[in-house]
Design a binder for these strands. Structure first.
Lengths: 256, 256
DNA sequence: CTTGACCTTGCCGCAACGTCAGGGTTTCTA
DNA sequence: TAGAAACCCTGACGTTGCGGCAAGGTCAAG
């Protein structure tokens, strides 16, 4: 047999046969004077085993190992972990399809696909063209992608649905060109601090170190005007104090 | 933010971020004087969308396309065919796992994993150390791999389980060194022809052309001694005559 | 004599990065 | 103040299982 014949017989391509030679799965057979490979029935049988094994999903390396120890000992073992691997893949695909199905039933927000929980939150939020609100949404999406926040979306619902919050956004927007010492900064920071729900306190602090790796915070603040940044700083400070008071009061929850 | 920070924030590696730059998914940001990339929140938001989309299983090319037309129009379409693709993959994995399960319940023949039908046939065959029988088994495995024969394994069951067939194999083995004109050749060919079941007639002929691509037949016959090859030739000839008689009798079954 | 169907070797391409190699920068620590 | 740790940079190769192409040589038929 020549290579095309053995390939057709077993149901693979000539190219694959040569590849198996190259990988050491199938020994190089004799050559005819013109250089053509000549295959025997024994080669075909071996090639057939290679095809069957690789069709089951074994990698060529695994196929080589299985063929090497001709007892069925290793085969059973490999097949076992192969099945486990396939089970894992199947589960993963199902997970992806679940997420896909969720995405396709609900209209997805313009920010792109996000977790269904956040999608509901964003849909519930009132429509606005506030620049600050847009940034907030972006940060929420970021947090969502980072896998962070799921747990306090609940706490945010009353906030985002509250039309009163829109006026706070408006006041922030008004500071888009203001300096850090603008007189409106202080009162706005107080007003914002007042509406931040308890749940956020858990999210922000996280000990002594910066909650976000420094550069991230800097990047966020760089999008703000000096006045807006100052408001942010003040709110963060106030939240830090609130947290400290709370932890000293309730104390040793997780002494670790 | 530097690259490591944005990567950690969004949950990918720095290498992936650079890769997305290279692929044109994420625009190259400004550099600091030392050459470091500096990222903004906007970059992080975009990177987050990339991660989400690619996690759903979109290829980077698809991600780029989806990001390009910022309406959700194309996205829905892509998600649709993605789901179809995943469904296909899931079905394929299930098929492989089914085959695996079959293999692992029954003890598998030393020839390696074969179709369950053939596995049953091989297990039913009596134990023997006849060289000819071994070759027969090999050819059956080959046929099985080629997807050929499933249909007449049934017909072979009575043959392979018949201990009387062992004596035929023995007589073939005795011709391992014999010449083509050995007197035992003729009678043995007749005996063999007599036991070949009807069902095989459908498998062998298949029209005028050689049933197997010439070189394959040659390879099979090269494993035989001259006497054995002669027996094979005679049996094939007889089968051909039988087939022709049958087709002229029942005739126009499939005039096409 | 010319197709056309084979065969040969060898090398690039793919998808989404991981992983060096071989440098420079910044920052913490002794 | 020096050295080490932890970053950053570019560039290039490795992964998997072949497909496809280039640039030939071989062989049977028309």
């Amino acid at each position: 047999m020549r290579i095309g014949e053995i390939a057709a017989l077993v149901g693979v391509t000539s190219r694959a046969v040569r590849h198996y030679h190259h990988m050491g799965l199938l020994p190089e057979p004799e050559r005819r004077a013109n250089g053509y490979r000549v295959y025997s029935v024994r080669d075909a049988v071996l090639l057939a085993r290679i095809r069957r094994l690789s069709e089951l999903g074994l990698s060529l390396d695994e196929v080589r190992d299985v063929l090497a120890d001709d007892a069925g000992r290793e085969l059973a073992e490999v097949l076992g972990e192969l099945d486990a691997d396939l089970a894992r893949q199947e589960e993963e695909i199902r997970g992806r399809r679940r997420r896909l199905a969720e995405l396709m039933t609900e209209p997805l927000p313009p920010e792109g696909p996000v977790s269904p929980t956040l999608a509901r939150l964003l849909r519930a939020a009132p429509d606005t063209d506030s620049a600050m609100a847009a940034k907030d949404r972006e940060l929420l999406v970021l947090l969502d992608t980072a896998g962070g926040g799921e747990e306090f979306y609940e706490a945010l619902h009353p906030l985002l649905e509250d039309p009163g919050v829109l006026s706070l956004y408006a006041r922030l927007d008004e500071l888009a060109e203001a300096a850090a010492d603008d007189p409106r900064v202080g009162p706005l920071a107080d007003a914002l601090t007042a509406v931040v729900p308890e749940a956020l306190l858990d999210a922000i602090p996280e000990g002594d170190g910066p909650p976000v790796p420094e550069g991230v915070g800097a990047a966020i603040f760089r999008d703000f005007s000096p006045a807006q940044a100052e408001v942010g700083r003040l709110v963060m400070e106030a939240l830090g104090r609130m947290r400290k008071r709370r932890t000293t009061k309730t104390d040793g929850k997780k002494p670790e």
